[in-house]
Nucleic acid binder design. Structure first.
Lengths: 343, 343
DNA sequence: TTGAAAGCGCTAACAG
DNA sequence: CTGTTAGCGCTTTCAA
């Protein structure tokens, strides 16, 4: 009996062999008791589970992973952990993973394509699948990754790759309707990163909605999607007919708020400002920001759930990716159109 | 030759055996070429590396981990991923890990002791060591973990367990000196969670520093370390001689700002407010918050570096944990003591 | 339903 | 310096 020769119950963590010996069954039976409980006599299984608990046996995921490839780990790679947009995504993803007893590897790529490639590379042989947030790598690189591991991308539709996204179009329509209802006739969009799919999407949606509502729209930018970026946009805001600005995201909106305050334009009396995302801090600034709330946590959760489904063998939903609904949060930065504009 | 029987170069990812065959060397030599380059002939090593690169071989971390126990993974478990204090810690930790080609597992325990235990349990057999942020579990449980894996805890000294911490004492002294220099004579500390080591530390340090500077101090609380917590503290602020408040953290300070504004007390004209941490958003609120900046990113980095050092065999620095220096950031929420107080 | 045996891909003695 | 030989702990045929 080969198993007799296995290590005796020394100080280190117990193995399947220890349980087998204690129980008087073969190691393979212990293994089965844990990995496919159906295939073992119910009472034997129970006895095995008892002794396992007693001697403190816990299956070793590494050892399991070697023959099966199943590591119970998924990788989440995001461009910037410190970007408030991602906190909630991370939490949602982590919660969904933990719920399924999966462990989440987190990588921060610092917005750099090279680091993103490295992170994927580093995690590839260890995770069962990936969730990629706002990826910087090319569509073809993405498809290559998808060929090796199940993959879900966030907020970016890529042919043949499953993704989940915010319903940008609906969000921008909400913003436009809100402003329209307040009587604004001319609005300016302050754009985020040029290459961003989300930015293009948001701009097009806003324009469409605004036009339908008989408002004039123009676009300024691109700007880096940050507070300084928003401040930089303010000078270009002056001199038009604009009485309301909608920004690519909240950081930009907060920057616009700042910039406007600096040059003495009062918000919302003289100018209304609407952000996008509803990040932590959007209600801290003053005036508190009216913004389109993106279901960030739900995004993380949905992505992981989708990934786990694929891992369980569900077909990859590559076509129409689900669009998560937005919600308009009206706070203090929007008000009816001023009778006489001043900017 | 046993190795001859190993799988031939089929479609799946190449192994050590594939490289060995291509190169005409033994598998163990290939292994050595990657794991201890010193122990193999330089030119052979180079040749191996070449072919490895050519056929796309990459060492399988799972397979490596099984015999060695070295997974190149560390676990970071934090109470709340969405708490702005932790973003920077996470980023610092992740960067330090990536720098050493380590992968980081992240777990969010939602401030719950049970989830913290589960997370540690889940990660235990897969990581080489842990960094635990603001752990909720007992000292003895912590020591038990430390017995199984190298461990570094954040902001909480535990006997026999290495830790890194913010220099709370110095931070509070900076706050007290700032307020003293502005002429304040009576200050109130708004306390955070009762059980928190950091809270106790901050309060004692503030009191000591204030007393030395001939200021009166009192303590209010405990309060949950959140914006609502800060708002809840405001009523108790009235009626004393207090002209300045120092809070356990920024969230509380922002809450105090809000609460004060609501009851018509002007900051900083009538009351000065100082926070702690300098989280994202501390400069977004209005007035922008004067606060003691904690080196959060450095904290994450230092913890991981310490952990990696232990992994390399350095002795666990359990005694005096390093204290990372704070920095006072003066913004708009503090001003000279009002001539006539009003609260 | 259970046991025996053969690996998963890599590392680590131990010889040579 | 290099090859040979056992495993790491678990899963998985294949028989019984």
């Amino acid at each position: 009996m080969a198993s007799e020769q296995r290590r005796s119950g020394d100080g280190s963590t117990p193995t399947i062999y220890d349980v087998a010996r204690e129980c008087g069954v073969a190691p393979s039976t212990v293994s089965r008791a844990f990995s496919r409980p159906g295939r073992v006599n119910a009472v034997t299984a129970e006895r095995i589970r008892q002794t396992a608990a007693r001697i403190g046996y816990r299956t070793n995921p590494i050892a399991r992973a070697l023959p099966t490839g199943r590591t119970s780990m998924i990788g989440l790679v995001v461009p910037d952990v410190t970007n408030p947009v991602y906190f909630e995504v991370i939490r949602g993803a982590e919660a969904a993973a933990a719920e399924a007893s999966f462990t989440m590897l987190l990588a921060d790529t610092q917005e750099q394509m090279r680091l993103e490639h490295e992170a994927i590379e580093r995690q590839m042989s260890v995770v069962e699948g990936f969730v990629l947030g706002t990826s910087r790598i090319s569509d073809s690189a993405l498809r290559k990754v998808a060929k090796q591991r199940p993959l879900v991308v966030l907020n970016r539709p890529v042919a043949d790759v499953p993704s989940v996204a915010i319903d940008n179009a609906h969000g921008m329509r909400q913003a436009a309707e809100h402003l329209g209802a307040l009587g604004h006739r001319a609005i300016t969009y302050v754009a985020g990163p040029e290459a961003s799919w989300a930015d293009g999407m948001r701009w097009r949606s806003l324009r469409e909605a605004a036009l339908e509502l008989n408002m004039r729209v123009r676009r300024l930018g691109p700007y880096p999607p940050t507070v300084p970026g928003g401040m930089a946009a303010v000078p270009s805001l002056r001199g038009g007919a604009t009485t309301a600005v909608v920004t690519y995201n909240d950081l930009l909106a907060i920057g616009v708020l700042r910039g406007l305050q600096r040059i003495g334009v009062r918000v919302p009396d003289e100018m209304s400002v609407v952000g996008f995302d509803n990040i932590f801090g959007a209600d801290l600034c003053s005036p508190a920001l009216t913004t389109v709330a993106a279901p960030l946590r739900a995004l993380g959760t949905a992505a992981v759930r989708e990934l786990l489904a694929q891992l369980r063998g569900a077909p990859a939903r590559t076509g129409n990716s689900p669009f998560l609904p937005t919600r308009l949060v009206v706070r203090e930065s929007t008000a009816p159109r001023p009778v006489r504009r001043r900017v």
